[in-house]
Design a protein around this nucleic acid. Structure first.
Lengths: 209, 209, 209, 209
DNA sequence: CCTTAATCGAGACGGTACGTCGTGTCTTTAT
DNA sequence: ATAAAGACACGACGTACCGTCTCGATTAAGG
């Protein structure tokens, strides 16, 4: 049943695959180093040599199976860009087992380095860097007057997405995505980054209640 | 050394106190039923008779030590009410050890009943019920035209607070609170719930960048 | 479902019955005070008020359900008397669950009073008192010259029976009983208590090999 | 404090030693796997990997510390051989804590394989195999006519020893040993295995009462 | 007849041990 | 040198029973 002695990348890939499969099957709390080792057809020391804690292993699996999408976004309108960007974010969170991010937060809360890594990939830090280019292009197109606004404003769209997905375990459908962009994010951006006088974009809410 | 045989509420209180102390000292992941029992001067079966899982024990300790504050809010203005309400929420989250809520989410993710309980106390569900009365009074005062808007809009303030506290492990100071209310929440409420024509409240952002 | 509140002898009998039933069903090691209480439809303190240890409870149940048989034996011959007496002993041991006597010995080994009680009822002490009268009558009938011989000789028959039943968990059938009496016990008694010159009882072994 | 990580035989020996010490100190009923582990400076899983039950552990300790003595016996006379053999048996039982064999019997009564092992080492089975060679040599020397007699006869000496030691918790001194051999065992063997006509060994009892 | 005392039933308590599982380290053997 | 394999020390898990204690409810006996 042996596949021969693997090493290097091949072995690493087998481990991440095993970790990911365990994550999907039993969830973060019940994922064990033992089972990952067995599933990968290897032994625990091989895992510990690479990732000294369960959190680091899972974070590595997450980075491998739910990578950041770096491709540029340019749909021609700020609204289109935001729908695309936030939609991608929702899709990313959708692929992460619901107990995984809270589990990682819990386990890394007292380990600043890993917590920082986690944050960079799945939390706040991704937002400003991702969103500001959209605003910059919107200014170039004449949709906004400036791309200067506080980070907190920029974080709003993903804060809402994370709240619903990570904290509430909900899924966000297209209607909800539209509501977030049209009723919350776009108005805020227009308020804080200004709207040229002749621009006639609708500011009224898209959905009522 | 014995304190006599305790029962009922006295014993329960000792257990919740021990659990809370462990939570503060070692954090959620390292809190063990064994240590809670020892700290409370009792034994594990006594705990398990009341709370069959660590998550339920911790949630009970949380409900005991960080209770919902039900007292009414009426400062005379929507802005004042929001500052008070969101400020209270921030204070509540500040008192919860940072790894506790994510830990509870992780461990209860597959137990709908406990997860629901957790959500009711520390997540989404508290928001609409808490905020809508503020809007209703604002309408009565003539600050807004209507209190009808989608739940998602109502959730915005606490979604932002939770993102920063629970997910990022940050603390929110008064300046941040002011920014959230003045630059994000109030404008959104005014946009979606209308502003009477003669009302002259400032809509401009309070902070720039 | 309640039978009314019992007390005194009725309650005691219910407890002994429950203990005996547990003994038969699950055996001595798995008999628990808890289960006996439940089975008897009462509670543990009621048991402990009467028998402070499991061993004493079981010994009481044993004394109740496998009592000493005191009726006189007089078949007219020493051989007949021995067959009857040893046969009765075998029957008594047969009715005691196989793990019970060793269990009692183990648990009472360091409690001289209970151990003594156990020994009186199920071990060595019963032998000399029971057997010597048989010898006395045999002397009166002229089968033996004297009833004086060492206790160890008198204990032989029941030592053999106890070895096979208690220690080996075996059952002793009639053939084995006959062999014990004819090939071992009778010859020893005749050797040590003498045989009148004109007595013509067979001394040859009843069974060969 | 640590003795370094032990493995294999060294560790096994430490466990058996700890078990044996516990047996001597607190006796079979109060011997716990926990305490054995602590005493051996290791942990319970290490024990359970080797012996899944307390009975098997104790039996292993017994086999290690009270081994069967295989050395040949040849004193030149049947009486001498028996005194030696039975004396060795008494010595073996003397070294076993008094509650241990009954405890093992109790706990293994429903596990035929372990019970069998126990029986082979400390009960009936040892007897015929050990005694018959003595008879065979006695025949060769002309002390007996045949070595053919029933197993039950052969078991008599050790049945008596076991009764007194295991069941009564008594110790057997030299006088008692002599009585058993001279007054019970030798006469029975001579009766059932015959005595050559010209043999002038005394058949009269050595002790009276 | 009614009070009083005793004991029943029910079950929680402080505690010990169980047998299992997971962690992170270490040793051994084989590649 | 590192992989595979697995044992090791450790500690926590959740459960079972122990023997004790508290608390009404019920019963029997005595005033």
């Amino acid at each position: 049943m042996t596949v021969g002695r693997r090493r290097g990348e091949e072995l690493e890939h087998a481990l991440l695959t095993a970790a990911w499969a365990e994550l999907l099957e039993v969830g973060y709390p019940k994922l064990t180093m033992d089972n990952v080792a067995v599933r990968a057809g290897t032994s625990k020391p091989v895992i510990y040599r690479r990732w000294p804690t369960k959190a680091k292993l899972v974070l590595a699996a997450l980075a491998h199976y739910v990578p950041l999408q770096e491709s540029d976004i340019d749909t021609g309108s700020l609204r289109g860009d935001l729908l695309e960007l936030v939609g991608r974010g929702i899709e990313r969170f959708r692929r992460v087992p619901g107990d995984t991010l809270p589990g990682l937060i819990t386990d890394t809360f007292r380990e600043p380095d890993v917590f920082e890594d986690l944050r960079r990939r799945f939390a706040q830090d991704e937002t400003p860097e991702l969103i500001r280019p959209l605003l910059t292009r919107a200014v170039e197109r004449g949709e906004l007057r400036t791309d200067r606004c506080s980070d907190r404003i920029l974080r709003v769209p993903f804060d809402l997405v994370r709240s619903e997905t990570v904290l509430y375990g909900m899924t966000i459908d297209d209607a909800a995505l539209t509501e977030i962009v049209d009723d919350i994010v776009l108005p805020l951006f227009r308020l804080h980054c200004g709207t040229p006088a002749n621009h006639t974009a609708p500011i009224a809410p898209a959905t009522g209640r």
